[in-house]
């Protein structure tokens, strides 16, 4: 018993977070910005092949956690090869789309949500919808309202980030941890989690 207590104080809990989304929406850039917030975002990020990992300590209101981020390849070919392994023991999923590309947003509904349901226990996972590249306001193709509607439908929260400027990047990961922690609390408290709409409203405040 005491053993477990010391373990929890010395070793922060590990959160496995999976990044999903089309190729080129900026998943790797988001992770790079998170793990290296002060480095200028360089452009020498090659397309992710298969899967890449990174870990980052996050200081959230719910205590320190170690986020183990699984950065996945966007192309369908690799998703098919590796998807079964993506979600094993995963605690959260960040679905990323590109606000300047309507196609990347559409394929979330068509492709990624379906695969999420196929391969993972979707209710167990904390999910967050992230619209990346929000600094490119001029060429925006996906409005915030559209994304919010999508979120309400699927019981997610929404956030717009920019890996380039660094806006909201850290916040996105922290939000995910918060969602997860809140769910845990609800579950252990015996109450059922509130409906998606209420969750979204509560979170955006």
């Amino acid at each position: 018993m005491s053993n477990r207590a010391t373990a929890s104080t010395t070793k922060p809990p590990l959160y496995k977070v999976v990044m999903l989304g089309d190729s080129g929406v900026g998943k790797t850039s988001l992770v790079a910005r998170l793990t290296n917030p002060n480095a200028p975002l360089n452009h020498d990020i090659s397309a992710t092949m298969g899967i890449e990992f990174d870990t980052q300590m996050l200081d959230t209101p719910h205590g320190k956690v170690k986020a183990q981020i699984w950065d996945t390849a966007g192309q369908e070919r690799f998703a098919r090869v590796l998807l079964p392994t993506y979600f094993r023991k995963a605690k959260g999923v960040i679905l990323v789309y590109d606000v300047t590309s309507a196609k990347s947003f559409d394929s979330l509904g068509e492709r990624w949500m379906a695969q999420l349901h196929d391969h993972a226990n979707s209710d167990e996972l904390a999910k967050l919808l992230v619209g990346n590249k929000c600094d490119l306001e001029d060429s925006r193709e996906v409005t915030k309202e559209k994304a919010e509607m999508f979120c309400n439908e699927h019981g997610m929260e929404h956030l717009e980030t920019s890996a380039k400027s660094g806006a909201n990047v850290l916040k996105a990961f922290e939000r995910l941890i918060t969602i997860r922690a809140r769910r845990r609390a609800w579950r252990s408290g015996g109450a059922s989690p509130p409906r998606a709409g209420a969750l979204g409203a509560g979170a955006t405040r």
């Binding site: 090659s46 092949m49 298969g50 899967i51 990992f53 690799f78 090869v81 590796l82 392994t85």
Partner: peptide
Amino acid sequence: IDPSFYSVRWLTTLLSR
């Protein structure tokens, strides 16, 4: 560590990465 975590890239890029 599943072998596919690293060897997918090794095989598909012929080790060029």
